[in-house]
Design a protein around this nucleic acid. Structure first.
Lengths: 344, 344
DNA sequence: TTGATTTATGACAGCGCTGTCGGTAATTGA
DNA sequence: TCAATTACCGACAGCGCTGTCATAAATCAA
């Protein structure tokens, strides 16, 4: 099967190679009739443009690199997150006719910034999607920016007014969850805060406060406990909350792991979920559907976020201008079995 | 930061660009002294060879494509598998200075073969790693072979004498597990067979029979149950086995999900694992460590398998000859809490 | 109809490397 | 010592496309 080149197509169609190039790249200024001739020739010869040649001549690699924290560095099963991010990025790449290169790397590794820079200088991708938590590491962000490669950050903590990022509406959707719990008749809705260093979970707490206010409920320190995102800390926080004089009838945890901890403690204390206690989490990790009762939570639209990130990159390439506002992909409530109405 | 080209390096080092190229590509016949001059110049200018140009001139893409079944097509959390496969492939790619492109695709999709062919013709990777279960679909394998791109299959079912694959020693290691159980004093070791269409689990059954024989135990239909790889089928099989007159003291399931089903049933029946019943699985999925007691199982060296696959590809590229034997990466027993000695 | 635009197409020069091959310098063997 | 190697290095021609620009054809305005 001798591969056809652009010359073969040009000959067969009776046009110049440049015209073939125009057809292939959907450039304007080609007569409809000419276009058809060329397309027929392409089909007939099963012609596929040579990427390397195209890249070399056009100074574009048609490559997007997705950089994320390497899960194999830890024992935690963050695999689901990564698959979902890859999914979205791949979807966008296919749409825009780019390829996706994945690059897990170790967050804590001191050299990570230098290594990334070297990688980028070699590959010369047309764009980079940098996922959390790496998107929060100034050293890394700076190193990538130094290469001059367009960069979109996913769920960055601080943005400094830079619009080149995509994130979700943690605060708004947490507010919505709180209002939902209130709408079920709950008056004492507790919140378990997450790890203080984690920006997103801070927004969730603010959303919780918003929700209370919008529901006409007063916030109270009695209803707030601190956790660190781990199951264990969720257990401790739940224990603390449930043993107070006037325990909450609903607990909203800043992430699913802590919510799972709450359910575990409730089980131990003989408190029935959801009849005696509603529990809600955040993130919609795989566990949320596996535990019993299935956890009401907020889905993190990771896949849509990376998809949006890649599209920002490819779009700005076409339009030759940077986007001037970030993309916010809204999360949605996943109402499952762990929450129910509370009759006062 | 004006990117340096090979000409800049050549000028600075006072040699020809060809010599620079030789140094960069570690080709022979460069004097040590010259090499150093060039390397200094490279370092000084922070020169990185342009991939596109190199690919175009060398007719190599320095790209490996990893093709696997798209997990998002189903609800099952096969994410862990995929991450591990990617891990191994990435490790090998870095060693050999290749890039990895991932390509999930839908197993059941009728067009998958045609689409893959188109993809490959566009990208022109230097090699392809095709993971199970796609590695068992003749239509897909044929389509890829038609492109002439070197292909290594991971865990293929049938091999037809073709050595271009890597797999694990399912049979041997299952035998080992059986012998291990026997060595713990178990005389009645039951086996739950997996889905009949799944080749690997068939080998596991054979390994089980080998193990019984080597341990001087007789195989018996009384000790064999059929499953379909699901948790539910594991439960059914366990129920069947445990309610027989002379129930087994150890159950070895052809995969972890079924083993988890066994544990669940044992719990319901009030049978203590491992004291009254030892349970062993196969695959070492994430669940195996999460359940209580932690499941003794066989680890599937997925990551090493894809690593080996990529290395077969890159090595054969260097040596310009195909490997003449497959790579077998041995699995290993993961002895955890669900198995213990049985005092007769 | 004629000149002024606009649209469509092609000629040509590279993009930044690698493969080939030929030439010169260093090394070997007798 | 001198050929016969062998080690080292460079000139040169592309790889298969795209960008630029010149040119031809079509369209338009008056």
């Amino acid at each position: 099967m001798p591969k056809a080149t652009i010359d073969d197509v040009a000959n067969l169609a009776g046009v110049s190679i440049k015209t073939v190039s125009r057809v292939v790249n959907r450039e304007p200024n080609v007569r409809e009739q000419t276009r058809e001739k060329v397309e027929n020739a392409i089909a007939q010869l099963n012609y596929r443009p040579n990427k390397a040649a195209r890249n070399l001549a056009s100074h574009h690699s048609h490559l997007i690199v997705l950089i994320y924290d390497d899960p194999s560095a830890y024992e935690i099963p963050s695999a689901g997150f990564i698959i979902r991010m890859q999914e979205g990025a791949l979807r966008a790449c296919r749409k825009a006719n780019y390829e996706l290169l994945i690059h897990p790397c170790r967050y804590r590794n001191k050299n990570v910034a230098v290594e990334l820079k070297a990688l980028i200088e070699q590959i010369r991708p047309d764009g980079i999607v940098l996922a959390a938590p790496l998107s929060n590491v100034p050293r890394v962000v700076r190193a990538i920016e130094e290469t001059g490669t367009p960069l979109i950050r996913v769920s960055p903590g601080k943005t400094d007014g830079d619009p080149l990022y995509v994130s979700t509406n943690d605060r708004e959707v947490s507010c919505e969850m709180t209002r939902y719990l209130a709408s079920l008749g709950h008056k004492r809705i507790a919140f378990i805060k997450g790890h203080p260093g984690h920006k997103a979970v801070g927004n969730r707490f603010r959303g919780y406060l918003d929700g209370l206010e919008q529901s006409g409920l007063a916030a109270s320190d009695e209803l707030i406990a601190a956790g660190d995102n781990s199951i264990r800390s969720g257990e401790a926080a739940a224990l603390e909350l449930l043993e107070r004089r006037d325990p909450p009838t609903a607990i909203f945890a800043a992430n699913d792991d802590m919510a799972a901890g709450v359910m575990r403690v409730a089980d131990r204390l003989g408190i029935k979920v959801p009849d005696e206690l509603s529990v809600a989490g955040c993130d919609d990790i795989a566990l949320a559907q596996q535990i019993y009762p299935a956890l009401t939570t907020i889905n993190q639209p990771l896949s849509q976020m990376t998809e949006a990130a890649v599209l920002m990159l490819t779009d700005s390439q076409r339009k030759k201008k940077k986007p001037d506002s970030p993309t916010i992909v809204p999360g949605t409530l996943k109402l499952r079995e762990s929450t129910t109405a509370f009759a006062n």
